[in-house]
Simulated scan of single mutants.
Amino acid sequence: MPFTDTAEAVRAWVHGWSASRGAAQPALSTWGFTVDVGLPGHVMRHVLPAADEETVHDITQRATAPGVWLKAFVPPETLEPWLAPGWHLAGGPGYLMCVPLAVAPTQAPVPIPAGYRLNTWTRDGVTRALVRTADGVFAARGQIAVTGDTAVVDQVETDPAHQRRGLGNLVMHSLTAAATEQGATAGVLGATPQGRALYERTGWRVLAPLTSALRGPDPTDT
């Protein structure tokens, strides 16, 4: 594993995710991090590297405005009883995953499937990969933020009409190759169960469970 412990990976993930999304610099507290995101359904998020019942209940009891998220590295069945009224689990089970980029299988050449074209660009330390069909229809995308020697993969998505054609693998290769060129030696990301299968095929391994909770309605964009 590229990280010595989960707390180190969480710190890297929080800072890279914030850079990827253009959110505020994470604010450090005794229990973890708070990030101002600034979206109507995602105003801010609290991230707890080592969650416990007392801390989670205290935070969720004090946070009463809608659009506040909480991320904890415990299974859903552990987190749910700790939440104060008005909070609920959101987004389904997740996973914190990591990979040593220098030896990641994704560094092998990945050809662009016939009928598609790939465009990548980097701005402010964030590299984006976009796959479209020959006539310009969206097929897949993803982005990666490099902060020091760590890179955080974010928002990887393949349109259902273009799945099972190797586009996810192409996006992952493009992103991690770009991060390696920028000096990153370790990758970290938060995955859904569906994304986990793709990432494991490209060399990533689960480091810890990742569960989300939300104060208020559950928006479609998490």
Rank of each mutant, 00 (worst) to 15 (best):
82 W>T: 00
76 P>Y: 07
61 Q>R: 15
86 G>P: 07
39 L>I: 04
40 P>K: 13
119 N>D: 09
114 A>F: 07
90 A>E: 00
62 R>M: 12
76 P>S: 09
37 V>W: 07
66 P>T: 12
99 V>D: 13
101 L>F: 06
102 A>L: 13
104 A>Q: 04
88 H>R: 14
95 Y>W: 15
38 G>V: 07
55 T>I: 10
123 R>G: 01
98 C>F: 00
74 V>E: 11
122 T>P: 05
89 L>Q: 04
103 V>F: 07
71 K>W: 05
113 P>M: 10
94 G>T: 06
49 P>H: 02
91 G>F: 05
48 L>G: 03
63 A>Y: 07
51 A>H: 01
56 V>P: 11
36 D>P: 04
45 R>K: 12
100 P>Y: 13
122 T>S: 14
116 Y>Q: 04
77 E>H: 10
55 T>R: 15
112 I>D: 01
93 P>F: 00
107 Q>V: 01
109 P>G: 06
84 A>T: 12
46 H>P: 00
98 C>I: 03
59 I>Y: 12
46 H>T: 05
46 H>F: 11
109 P>L: 08
51 A>D: 02
47 V>I: 14
110 V>C: 12
112 I>W: 10
79 L>A: 07
115 G>K: 09
71 K>L: 03
93 P>W: 05
116 Y>N: 04
110 V>E: 11
122 T>E: 01
50 A>I: 04
115 G>S: 00
123 R>S: 00
83 L>A: 10
68 V>G: 09
77 E>P: 03
111 P>L: 05
64 T>P: 00
64 T>C: 08
65 A>E: 15
48 L>C: 02
41 G>N: 00
111 P>S: 04
76 P>F: 09
74 V>F: 08
54 E>I: 02
99 V>S: 08
57 H>I: 05
66 P>G: 00
50 A>R: 12
91 G>H: 12
54 E>S: 12
100 P>S: 07
37 V>S: 02
114 A>C: 03
120 T>S: 14
41 G>A: 02
85 P>D: 09
70 L>P: 14
57 H>K: 14
117 R>T: 12
46 H>N: 11
